[in-house]
Computed example of a mutant assay.
Amino acid sequence: MAPLWPYVTPGIPDHLFEQLPGIPISKREVRLLMVGALRLKPDAQLWDLGAGTGTLVVEAALLCPQGQVVAVERDPEVANLIRLNCDRFQLSNVQVVEGMAPDCLDTLPPHPDCVMIEGGKSMREVVEAAWHHLPSGGRLVVTTGTLETLYGIAETFAQLCVRNVEIVQPAINRLETRGHQQVFKAIDPVFLLSGEKLD
């Protein structure tokens, strides 16, 4: 168990992660929904495509101590930030791959139980390519912040015959202190799509 987060539950506060200016992170409340959608087992093999700063990578790796998390990130500086965050939480079950999906998928450890796709360009192409690497019973979870991408992913899910599809668009507000007042600040909305591959 990582001393920085000595709990078995997910939901690590955002400030415990190393961050870079201008690089957004998946907020804690959204990560909780993402982790729930993945339905991870202790020995799960997870690909996180477009892993960003690695916040979900850390949460998932802590929940899968006998498993492996592969974090794919195209930006070398951001990929190094994932490594730094994994070191902060003393994780040894994460492999960071500098590359761009879908081009690098054939080089990853095969047969992931779960694939997480976090935003990015060419989403439909990445979803289709990742789907073909999932074994029967595998789960696919995709996030996007735009309505246009939501439509494209939903169409792709239908074409691929993704089963048990769920689509969630949470509205989350956080209490913050501004001067002498407390106000609720909205977290940027995100669409969360998930489903299973059942052959």
Rank of each mutant, 00 (worst) to 15 (best):
T107K: 14
L81N: 08
T53A: 15
A101D: 07
G145S: 11
S122I: 00
R88W: 07
R39I: 03
N80Q: 15
A130P: 02
L56D: 01
A130D: 03
L63S: 08
G119I: 11
L81E: 07
V190Q: 09
M100I: 11
P112H: 09
L105W: 01
P21S: 13
T146C: 09
E176R: 14
V69L: 07
A44I: 06
T55P: 06
L84H: 09
R74W: 01
V127G: 03
H133E: 13
A186R: 09
G138C: 07
H180Y: 11
V69Y: 01
L38G: 02
P65E: 10
R88Y: 05
C104W: 02
R139S: 13
H15F: 04
L193I: 15
R74A: 12
C86R: 01
L175R: 14
E125Q: 15
A79C: 14
A2K: 00
F184Y: 15
T156F: 02
W5S: 02
C86D: 01
S136L: 05
G137R: 02
G137N: 06
M116D: 02
V183G: 05
D199G: 14
G50N: 13
R31V: 12
L175S: 14
L4E: 10
T177R: 14
T53S: 15
E148F: 04
T149W: 00
C86Y: 00
R124I: 04
V94Y: 00
L147I: 14
R28A: 10
V183D: 07
I153V: 15
L134H: 05
V142G: 02
Q182L: 12
W5D: 02
G138L: 05
H133V: 05
Q182N: 04
P42S: 11
